[in-house]
Design a protein around this nucleic acid. Structure first.
Length: 558
RNA sequence: CGGGGCGUAGCGCAGCCUGGUGUAGCGCACCUGCCUUGGGAGCAGGGGGUCGGAGGUUCAAAUCCUCUCGCCCCGACCA
């Protein structure tokens, strides 16, 4: 491809609206343009990257026996009403009416549609298993589109769905996907982890996410280097650091105007880990007192699974219910439900005395108060693995893929049943698996860039090689460049030739920005000795080779 | 939806606080010519603006006030 004939609008300056590195570089290097919040146009270079990723997706999906189909983006409301999601999902679904006044929506995902299909077409265990997939546009009215292509309102997704006769079959389909995903992300040159995740509203019991570590990510994951435990922070378990059990006797301490753990900790010259933080919450079944150690944070989502929907109590409510203002609440002498963090059980602590300006020292859980014990703290850096006790790390990451075991959540309401060998009618056991190609592209850029631009891995680079004839007015340069272009292209190498009549500096800058992995630099001086340079974008290593050697060297780099 | 920031030429910005400096400015990009060709050159000339929009205050508004739209960031949300 000739640079001069391709629309590659590079930008010298950093666009004001971009913050994430991948966003800045995709805009600057001419891969995408933004139409509105969360809506992007893919320019020629950007599309080439997405298509290369899609090709890998298809190859690996086909390799596990998945079959490509394509489903509509516009859905009738009925199927969403049948699964209950028409009402469960709020503003995030784009809804509309057709001219006949029928309710419709734009597909955020395709469980409903594909289950509708399965319900109609699969009747016997003989039709199972099946894995169907598509690479299709999804629309979600995101509350906050952000970080360029990472979180958009319209995006492409590879979504596949498995249909099995039983749990064993589902496990097999799930594993096939996990393996395919490992291959896909490895081929795309991404550093990633597979982590345990919260199935959330998708339903089902088991779910994993594929996470590409990057500061631009929206998720946090905990990782254990020793045993490999890895989980989204939304459900990650951890053991807080051990503390020495004190031999304090039970006594009230005067703590005037000291309310927060930090204030009291400072006042009594004791580390925050010797405190019990008591937080009053209002659940649908009344007030609940949640307890975590002073150096830990309460995990709302974990607590949510135990006590259901809840909200923090307001100042007035605290006074009414406990009889003392927030800041002096302790776990003792309450009739209400108390949920304590498991790791609070051992030890002797300080907490509020339920009396203004007093705290109690020497509280022994189990003796001075009792509670239901669960892991309800947020795992953090410095905590220990609950499986092997090794130190845990916490990293930010971009979610690039996920796999869910759905079970019968969709097959039952949409009546996707089959007859088993015994002639018994049973619901199909389903799984759902997603990958966002745009997120792969963005994650790869986040992980592979330098001050000058993008550094693509060859597998998803828009081209394999860029030829830079430095002086287009020099006939010999042009002649050699065109010959190399023809030769390489003839051998199946994807080549971009910068045939613009621009100065060398501009060509170098643009080439670095765009990030094609190998550059062939043709300069007049070297050419006089019959030499051209092959430069590695990543290492910046340059080797001089004769014109004749180029094709061979490019094919076997290094 | 809560909090914050920003809308001035294609892009990046100054001017706004404290209204009036004459035709609203600068850099880059763009057009013409010359020159130049190994890291976003140089010289000369040139084109391009509803100052996001509406209303108001005023003799006078890019500047002050009200409303509104858009975009970004933090949080909430995220099937």
């Amino acid at each position: 491809m000739q640079f001069s004939k391709m629309f590659i609008p590079t930008l010298k300056e950093i666009p004001a609206d971009a913050e994430a590195i991948s966003h800045i570089l995709m805009l600057r290097a001419g891969y995408v343009r933004q139409l509105a919040a969360g809506l992007y146009i893919y320019l020629p270079l950007g599309l080439r990257v997405i298509e290369k990723i899609n090709k890998i997706l298809k190859e690996e999906m086909n390799a596990i026996g998945a079959q490509e189909i394509t489903m509509p983006v516009l859905h009738p409301a009925e199927i969403w009403q049948e699964t209950g999601r028409w009402d469960d999902i709020g503003d995030e679904m784009f809804r509309l009416k057709d001219r006949g006044g029928r309710d419709m929506c734009l597909g955020m995902t395709h469980e409903e549609v594909i289950t509708w299909l399965a319900a109609r077409e699969i009747r016997s265990y003989r039709n199972l298993p099946q894995i169907w997939y598509q690479i299709q546009t999804k629309l979600r009215d995101e509350a906050r589109p952000k970080s360029g292509v990472l979180r958009t309102r319209e995006f492409l997704m590879k979504d596949s769905y498995s249909f099995d006769a039983d749990e064993d079959g589902l496990e097999r389909s799930y594993q096939l996907h996990a393996e395919a995903y490992h291959k896909i992300f490895s081929r795309c040159g991404i550093k990633f982890y597979m982590v345990e995740s919260d199935p959330g509203m998708m339903g089902g019991a088991t779910a994993h996410e594929f996470m590409a570590p990057s500061p631009a990510g929206e998720d946090e994951i905990t990782l254990c280097d020793k045993c490999g435990y890895s989980a989204n922070i939304e459900l990650a378990c951890s053991i807080p650091k051990k503390i020495d059990v004190q031999d304090w006797t039970f006594e009230e301490v005067y703590t005037p105007e000291k309310r927060t753990v930090q204030e009291v900790s400072h006042f009594l010259k004791l580390g925050p880990e010797y405190f019990i933080k008591s937080i009053l919450l209002i659940s649908d079944d009344g007030p609940v007192l949640a307890l975590v150690r002073g150096d830990q944070e309460l995990h709302e989502k974990k607590l949510n699974r135990i006590i259901g929907k809840h909200r923090p109590a307001q100042k007035e409510e605290v006074k009414d219910i406990i009889g003392v203002e927030a800041g002096f609440i302790g776990p003792m002498n309450h009739k209400m439900r108390i949920v304590g963090d498991t790791y609070l059980k051992e030890g002797i602590y300080v907490s509020g005395a339920n009396k203004p300006h007093y705290h109690t020292k020497g509280i022994k859980p189990g003796k001075d108060f009792d509670a239901e014990w669960y892991d309800i703290h947020i795992a953090k850096e410095g905590d220990f693995c609950h499986k092997c006790n090794a130190p845990l790390g916490v990293e930010r990451a971009i979610e690039i893929g996920n796999i869910f075991k759905l079970g019968t959540k969709y097959s039952v309401p949409l009546k996707a049943f089959y007859l088993d060998k015994a002639g018994q009618e049973k619901p199909i056991i389903m799984g759902s698996y997603g990958i966002g190609p745009a997120r792969i592209a963005a994650a790869v850029i986040e992980q592979n860039n330098d001050k000058d631009g993008i550094i693509w891995p060859t597998s998803i680079a828009p081209f394999d090689v860029e030829i830079l004839p430095l002086n287009m007015k020099d006939t010999k340069t042009v002649e050699v460049a065109e010959k190399l272009y023809k030769d390489l292209t003839g051998e199946g190498v994807g080549v971009l030739i910068d045939d613009r009549d621009e100065r060398a500096g501009i060509k170098f800058k643009d080439a670095d920005l765009i990030g094609i992995p190998t550059h062939i630099i043709i300069g007049e001086k070297n050419l006089k000795e019959g030499l051209v340079e092959i430069k590695d974008r990543k290492t910046r290593d340059v080797v001089k080779v004769t014109v004749e050697e180029v094709a061979e060297k490019v094919k076997t780099p290094g």
